[in-house]
Design a protein around this nucleic acid. Structure first.
Length: 213
DNA sequence: AGCTGATCATTG
DNA sequence: CAATGATCAGCT
């Protein structure tokens, strides 16, 4: 599977889509997850929206990483939705973020905005598991953000919180609502949130990999 | 130019 | 509705 991913390196998305018999959209405005879904399809990941790794047997999560020609990620990377309730007994060791990030196949895609989708090229995929240092950074941020949620301060959380991990809205739109608890423990409805990896962190992963290989 | 809140499609 | 896949786009 990793080898199949490496075989995609250097191909354009147009070529990959053609292999898969999938047509390429003009833009991603109404197909924001298209590249990720294309890669899942050609690599044989299990489809669907089930909360499982993309490759359950291998415990590997597939993430496409939009980068520019200089190798800089262009977007933050969504990790998972953030539970706002039922957090008693949840800690870093058993949390969903850690599980999701335990083994990730990153597939960089050169996604300069001025390039048509079909002309954008797949970079060299790499398999990653957090080093001790990386995991410590993630754990620190996760704990800070989770503490705030537990304290009923979810609406005080800004994207700037966290060094490598941030909490931002993750919903259909600003009208989306999910349940949370306020500082007095009373339930109220608020925007669903998700954990995202900040750009400098994924940039570091990419560059570490490039140095090693 | 980067950040962060807002948004889109699809599925179970 | 909430989870999957993310990128858009206005504001600073």
């Amino acid at each position: 599977m990793y080898l199949r991913a490496q075989a995609l390196a250097g191909l354009t998305l147009g070529e990959v889509a053609e292999r898969a018999g999938i047509s390429v959209p003009k833009d991603l405005k109404r197909n924001k997850g298209w590249i990720g879904l294309l890669l899942e399809h050609v690599l044989g990941a299990s489809a669907g929206s089930r909360p499982e790794p993309d490759f359950p047997h291998l415990g590997i999560e597939l993430k496409s990483l939009p980068i520019n020609e200089q190798g800089k990620p262009l977007e933050t990377t969504f990790v998972s939705v953030a539970p706002l309730t039922g957090l008693t007994g949840v800690n870093w060791k058993n949390c969903y973020v850690r599980k999701k990030l335990s083994r990730v196949l990153w597939v960089p895609v050169i996604t300069n905005k001025d390039l048509p989708i079909a002309c954008r090229k797949v970079g060299m995929p790499f398999l990653w598991s957090p080093s001790i240092e990386e995991e410590n950074l993630l754990a620190l941020d996760w704990q800070e953000l989770t503490d705030m949620i537990v304290l009923g301060e979810v609406e005080k959380i800004q994207g700037k919180h966290g060094q490598v991990l941030q909490l931002r809205p993750k919903g259909a739109n600003s009208q989306s609502k999910t349940q949370a608890f306020d500082r007095h423990g009373k339930p109220f409805m608020t925007l669903p949130r998700g954990f995202y990896l900040k750009i400098p962190f994924t940039q570091m992963l990419l560059h570490k990999h490039l140095r090693i290989n």
